[in-house]
Amino acid sequence: MAALELGIDASVAEVPARRGRRLGPLFWMAIVWMIFVFAVAIFADVLPLPSPTDMDMLEKRAPFSAEHWLGTDGLGRDELARVIYGARISLIVGLCAPIIGLTFGGALGILAGYFRGRFESVVVGSMDVLLAFPPLILALAVTAYLGQSILHLTFILGLLGIPAFMRVARAATLTLARREFVIAAQALGATHARILLRELLPNVMLPLFAFFLLAVAITIVAEGSLSFLGLGVPPPISSWGSMIGEGRESLEMAPRLAFIPAIAMFLTVLSFNLVGDTLRALTDPRQGAL
């Protein structure tokens, strides 16, 4: 019996150690890069940078220098300033759009997984219809009707993210809805609202937050793709996607104009993916199954 207790204690003590080993150097490098990107985007106004919209036609495609660390673009605008200010747009859209999906999709998924029945069929069916609608056509339609703006772009991407969040929340709720703590709350006479808010929501939020980080990475790429196609934010506002689109015209003369924002986007998306995958693995209930 003592040996069994010692074995259980040892296995419990190994859980934090195993989780610590999972947070390898790549995870912390991703965290450092994310902090750096957020810091320069937030404090761009106080950094010693030239205006990202000031043009100097005599300095078109100027190389790296002490005055322009990353050179200038085809209109003589400072490339470093444009990359940093472009990070603001990419991060604003990349964070706000998944928040829309998380709020509405998460709420619908929890309600559908808990109440089941006809309500679940209606929610799942409507999400399937939304998934079946071509996202590019939806973006074109909304942009043509409402015009190009950060708000409209965020709304489009947030709407397209609702079905994915609904599926994640519903799957987690279906797993938790018949657990002992939920059954005990029902036996004690707890209302549906109390069970949803006090018992299910805190547990469902863990996988939803992990998926949220992955959705941020996907949204940044989607925003970049739409901006590359001319459906993103209107000029003179720049994002990484629009910078890549403008840089393609100078690939032969100055390929760095496309590669620098592409590298910034790649590292940011990779960082969100690494952190999201790690947190998803840590919050996966199957990982802790005995």
Rank of each mutant, 00 (worst) to 15 (best):
A164Y: 15
G109H: 12
T219R: 07
G230A: 14
A177W: 05
P52G: 13
A254F: 06
F228R: 09
P202L: 08
F133E: 05
G7M: 01
P285A: 07
G224P: 08
G125M: 06
Y145T: 10
W240M: 14
W33N: 07
G76L: 07
L257H: 09
L160H: 00
V221M: 13
F155A: 13
L131M: 08
F104N: 04
R194H: 03
G7A: 12
L70G: 00
R194F: 11
L226K: 04
L282E: 15
F181L: 01
E246K: 02
E223N: 06
A187F: 00
A41M: 13
L102S: 05
L159W: 05
L231H: 13
T175L: 09
L213M: 14
L196V: 05
W28P: 05
S225W: 10
M127W: 14
I110T: 02
A262P: 01
M1T: 03
E199C: 01
P207E: 13
N273S: 08
V233M: 02
I237S: 10
A139I: 05
V182K: 05
F119D: 04
A97G: 10
I31R: 04
A144L: 15
S239N: 05
F38A: 11
A141C: 15
T154I: 15
P255D: 03
V204G: 00
F209T: 00
I137N: 06
P163Q: 10
D78E: 07
Q148S: 06
